[in-house]
Nucleic acid binder design. Sequence first.
RNA 1: GCCGAAGUGGUGGAAUUGGUAGACACGCUGGACUCAAAAUCCAGUGCUAGCAAUAGUGUGCGGGUUCGAGUCCCGCCUUCGGUACCA
Length: 954
Amino acid sequence: MQYQPEKVEKKWKQYWVDNKVYKVDIDTSKPKFYVLDMFPYPSGAGLHVGHPLGYIASDIVARYKRLKGFNVLHPMGYDAFGLPAEQYAIQTGVHPEVSTAENIARYRSQLDNIGFSFDWSREVNTSDPKYYKWTQWIFLQLFASWYDKNSGKAQPISVLISRFEEGGSSVVNAAHSNDRGFSSEEWKNMSDIDKDQILMNYRLAYRKVGYVNWCEALGTVLANDEIKDGLSERGGHPVEKKAMTQWSLRITAYAERLLNELEHLEWSDALKTMQRNWIGRSEGARVFFKLENFDDTIEIFTTRPDTIFGSTFMVLAPEHELVPAITTAAQKVEIENYKNYVSSRSERDRMSDVKEVTGAFTGANAIHPITGEKIPVWIGEYVLKDYGTGAIMAVPSDDERDKVFAEKFGLTIIPVVDKSNYPGAGIHDKTGIMINSGFINGLEVKEAIQRMLDYIESNGLGRKEINYKLRDANFSRQRYWGEPFPIRYDEEGVACTLDEDVLPLVLPELENFLPATDGRSPLARAEQWVHETPGFVRETDTMPGFAGSSWYFLRYMDPNNENEFASGPSLEYWKDVDLYVGGTEHAVGHLMYSRFWHKFLFDIGKVPTREPFLKLINQGMIQGVIEYLFMKKEKVNGQTVFTSAEIVRQKDSEDGYTKIPVHVDFVRSGGANGSYLDIKGILKFTEWRPEFANAVFESGNGYKGTAANFLDKDSTDEIKIYLVSEIGKMSKRYFNVVNPDDVVARYGADCFRMYEMFLGPIEQSKPWDTKGIEGVQKFLRKFWSLFFDDEKWLVNDTLATAEEKKVLHTTIKKVCDDIERFSLNTSVSAFMVCVNELKRLECHTAEILEPLVRLLAPFAPFITEELWQNLGNSSSVHKSTYPVYNPEFLTSDTVEYPVCVNGKKRDMIEVSKEMSAAEIENMVMAMDMVQKWLEGKAPKKIIIVPDRMINIVV
RNA sequence: GCCGAAGUGGUGGAAUUGGUAGACACGCUGGACUCAAAAUCCAGUGCUAGCAAUAGUGUGCGGGUUCGAGUCCCGCCUUCGGUACCA
């Protein structure tokens, strides 16, 4: 019987559904194991071959753990709110709910096609009101909480209010953004609106001014992703920063815990380092600088208080609230112009450009808190509003950017750290001896920092402080397709929450998904919805993408619960995720927000664990090849011109050309350097992009013409328009998506699964390529042929030989070790080696083949299910047990040693395991090869590494 | 710019703790079977020299530590991911 994957796979897919093979429930008789994948955003392009990489790996582990006797929770769902569906709705009028449902249906069928063992009864969809009811509920809990630094956890706002009543703001040690202190009397006499404003600055979900990318021409707020080189990607219009009051989450309150509690997690060091650096804890001082002629003070944060004597000017973020007040009349125009320039700059550009600094003088001076000198106050884009206090004391002698700034604007530089005793020390290294620094002269930097901190505190100039690079998370989006806030504002503008029992607050129906005026969310168009309750207006912003994904892993534990986000017993049983698999692109964003929400839920007693994800594996990306055509920026005689890449390369500059992505299906020799469009490709391209129907194509061999001119050419290879290939994301926007369905249709799901694993280590990124998939296909056929020849069943009951047992048990050991350390590419090789060996030994005994089927089942669930049935079993192979390796079968009496001379392998020698080192030495010295290399001399040293190798040093 | 990762034959990759570099595959070359093809099977395959035995050389580049370095250290280069509103 021939191996026919399509037949076998169809049969077992149905069987699994009919018999609910992967359904899982709480079972306290078994240990639990939770295997989670980062759920996909269901994009219009469908699932591509990159998505399943992690899913296959986690599915193998889930199946392996099940066979090992664990009760495995292995769910899947959809992160279904997002920008692309909304953009699609604007373009086509199709409601995001409709397109999302279609995309989900497509994803589901694609996922089913690959044979995953998900328990689909637990599917989660973040855009389903039954789900986002609980996202809104969590938001309400955040709104109703503040962070008490004394108890180190979130507390109800009611506790805060009673503290204020008892002792005012000074008795509270909270994470907050409140800038005025008050006594209990003052609190009691405050109006409700004032109280509300104060409380807002303590809430974990609060409102503050944030900056959005505003595009006047498009009348909309843009995502960073929609901006290229400072212009809108659609249309190339200017983009500027615009201030808007927005919801924000006080993640900074959790900075210390997010940092410290990383330690026990089984995450890669690289990932932990990324999170640590993102949190960016630094110890230093907050120092107050008085202003000349103003009552206000400028607050700065510095990690180098020792260098304060070298501070010769100050720089404020251009958005700093003091800037308008302190700018002198003479400097007003300059400051305004500079602020306009800065609002056109992205934050990334502001941080990246270190060679060129820019800035403007406010005309104001600050008073140096120690020397009393007047120092000028500037604004500069390299100081960010949301980092630290949004202001710095500039020390041009000991900071790179301050130095460049001082040099450019002719400001004073006073050297304060003598590094002459530390050759090779960089400008930021905390080493050297203080000079020109008054009472700390002569001290080592580290000592000077301590001395200065003490001085600052005891003289009331400031205080020690810990600062974090981590910033509070902007939680508002001016979009339709997201969770509505369960918030409405009264006539005074006070934010009032909806009652929990009216949740979910469902998105209103809309026809037009374009943003409303002034960049307000499209929700503002739903007049009736906005004004539903007399005297109130609803919040029209929606929550960002990370809202729903910050807690979905909890919902899987009890996905259909209508009374709670998940029941106590289910949370208590499943606890946390034992294995989380997903891409590094989420290293800081999603993983940081999820940990934050989880810790908050822990604080309010809703989850039993401090951390959500115990072990995490980052899968690499499967990249696509992006193929670009060179297009001349300027039209020639009114026509668009595409130029073959070799012509452009001869000019050693790509200036004057734009790169237009081409659908990879049109390209010949794609992926390599010599990819090109032939005549057929050009015709397909112009058909696909009708706006280029009359474009001129220039080839390297002198042809020039439009697609129509090429029609009469006989040979499609006569004209080659070469392209540039780049490795990048597989994405609809680059037209390079490869659908797993196509691969499965051709080779079968088992083959696709094993091939994706065989491609290389799971953590590594690599471009998709089907070169080599036939090796895996051959393996599966060969495996099958151990059981069946053309028509006959070959498996018999003969006793297995020692050699056969050795092959099997070597493989069991290797595969188990590999799964445990997540090295799935090498376990596929191990299976190949095993089958090659068994084939050579003409092994057809059930004693070997039956455990081998179980061993392979997690990798190739279909073919093994079929063979398992043929072996006479009536239940699923996935309900059996995993084979256990027996070391007895692997013993050997001899060891083969490589014999090296000076570390270079020269010969091999087989040695009995019983031999002593001295005996081996004698044996080695007697070898002809050794004598030849010694050339009569005595060896300096003989190194014998047991079971490894022998090295002779000459 | 900053943070993180990767770089090994023609290609994907293996080498788990400093100990035989290139397992397993793809591709290629030659052969068997076949009228022919597909499929299958056998042999070879890092590079250079050599009929061969063998020798030299070889893990992005330049240094270093070590009896021994793909693996550790220092300095670079290139590519990828993130950089706070793509998900």
